[in-house]
Amino acid sequence: MKFLMPALLLSASLTQAADLKIEDAMARAVPPTAKMSAAFMTLTNNADTDLAVVSAESSVAKAVELHNNTMTDGKMKMRQVNQIDLPANQTTELKPGGQHVMLIGLNRALVEGETIDLKLNFSDGSSESMEIPIQQIKPMMQHKH
């Protein structure tokens, strides 16, 4: 079992999901009255078999769901998805404007610099528990070309 975790993740528990690398995991810092936030990360499935995130849990939210955002014709649409696919030998990004772990009904403010617990459950029955940092999403400063 090879499970590479960045140093920022404070704990990593047992998982059956071999050859899965989770990087740059973070929860979005949100205003004190915000009831929602989202968690983002990069997942690399180095195995030869497909995997999927099928659910997630956290103590900071009443419900944790998997969602996908799409922008079509200038309209932003967010939909719940049953799972986030992690195809074999591919990197899947959960990022603003795309797929994310949605934290619904926050029971505390998500303040930059603190951490939250997050557990991902995978399609092979394994799971991964981690502490991820709360960060501001910094807008890109570069000009578009």
Binding site: R28, N69, M76, M78, M102, I137, K138, P139
Partner: peptide, 17 residues
């Protein structure tokens, strides 16, 4: 809307910056 976890806070962040 405030339950919008993504594009709304991103746009507000851009505006504030």
């Amino acid at each position: 809307f405030m339950s919008c976890p993504d594009v709304c806070p991103t746009s507000m962040g851009v505006m504030g910056t």
